[in-house]
């Protein structure tokens, strides 16, 4: 487990909700599947046209969108499947997959921090929008 929770931290039978219920929605967010990743999507805001195809096809809800624009990638949950990079229109190629080990080695904490910050705060200044509407099917 990569949640920091140990068996001996867990509650006993008298203290858990009845019937095996999970009484809080979306608790899976606390489980960090980002550790599964062998390849990391690196997103280039300069190239991105915000077609949002990466977002609609992401299995892990990891493409962060704010006000209709991509603002980052949730690397805590992204498993590195590469669908986003593959579905990014061939003339755009705003997402590239790089080996996780290389990304970590080359950029160290920098990449991680930047991506996380962008994910949280959203992009500030962007070049003019290249396309108005959301993405179309290929």
């Amino acid at each position: 487990m990569n949640t920091g929770e140990k068996d001996w931290d867990k509650k006993g039978w008298k203290d858990v909700p009845i019937a095996g219920l999970i009484t809080e929605p979306g608790t899976a967010r606390r489980y960090k599947t980002g550790e599964w990743r062998t390849h990391r999507p690196v997103w280039d805001p300069e190239k991105c046209i915000n077609c949002l195809l990466c977002w609609i096809y992401c299995p892990d809800s990891a493409i962060q969108v704010k006000d209709g624009k991509v603002v980052g990638i949730d690397l805590e949950h992204c498993k590195g499947c590469g669908i986003c990079a593959h579905e990014c229109p061939s003339k755009v190629r705003a997402i590239n997959m790089v080996l996780e080990s290389e990304a970590e080695a080359e950029d160290g904490e920098k990449v991680k921090e930047e991506t996380m910050r962008e994910g949280e705060e959203g992009e500030k200044e962007r070049k003019e929008e290249r396309k108005g509407e959301g993405g179309n099917e290929k």
């Binding site: 068996d7 039978w13 008298k14 858990v16 009845i18 095996g20």
Partner: peptide, 10 residues
């Protein structure tokens, strides 16, 4: 295995 037993005990 980390939770089933607690739920059945309950």
């Amino acid at each position: 295995a980390d939770w089933y037993f607690e739920h059945k005990r309950q």
